[in-house]
């Protein structure tokens, strides 16, 4: 019965089934296997981002110098960050688009903070393969939809940095951020 299971096994009886040597074999191979995995784990894990890389977590950006219609490039986690002050005309243009027709459907309101709809803050990293799109500085190519254009593989983003044409699958990523005052944002 259940309570005395184990006392009647072939090993204990010295019968045909599991012998003492089988047990030692399985135990030895199992211990070596677990030991091997225990060694592999740090060997794999050492390749992940190290503590100092992870420590570069947040950045503050001063918005006071950015006029409507202008944009600036800041640095967040060693990657470019686009901060754009949208004009009322650009906001109207972004809201005019039928969201259902977009590849990655999002409204401008979902991509900005309430009360700060004119501040479009996104990563400057194309969601295709990671190039920096152009369109921040004056005179740079903004693409067919007036936002950003990635020169590597031809992705066009609109004024709300939403993907409209080309190979990129997603809109430019909006990082976590908050307004610490009317003119300062804390990213990350």
């Amino acid at each position: 019965m259940a309570h005395d299971a184990g006392t009647d096994t072939p090993a204990a009886t010295g019968g045909e089934g599991v012998r003492r040597r089988d047990f030692i074999n399985i135990a030895a191979v199992s211990a070596a296997g677990v030991g091997g995995l225990a060694v592999v784990y740090p060997l794999v894990s050492q390749m992940s981002a190290s503590a100092d890389v992870l420590a570069e977590s947040s950045t503050e950006v001063d918005l006071s110098q950015v006029e409507p219609g202008q944009a600036i490039k800041a640095i967040f986690r060693k990657q470019p960050l686009f901060v754009r002050n949208l004009t009322p005309a650009e906001i109207a243009e972004a809201n005019k688009v039928d969201v259902a027709t977009l590849r990655d459907p999002q409204t401008l309101a979902e991509r900005t903070k309430e009360g700060h709809e004119n501040w479009l803050i996104t990563m400057g990293v194309c969601t295709h393969l990671g190039c920096v799109p152009s369109g921040v500085a004056e005179g740079e190519v903004k693409g067919e939809f007036g936002g950003y254009f990635c020169p590597c593989h031809g992705s066009h983003y609109d004024v709300a940095a939403r993907i409209r044409k080309g190979p990129a699958p997603k809109n430019l990523v909006v990082p976590d951020y908050e307004f610490t005052s009317d003119t300062v944002v804390k990213i990350g």
Binding site: M47, S48, A49, S50, V53, R77, K78, Q79, V125, G130
Partner: peptide, 17 residues
């Protein structure tokens, strides 16, 4: 990708490996 790079974008860890 972050595991391959050792960070969020190519940097020292990437170059070294």
């Amino acid at each position: 990708r972050e595991w391959l790079l050792g960070g969020f974008s190519p940097d020292n860890a990437t170059l070294n490996r």
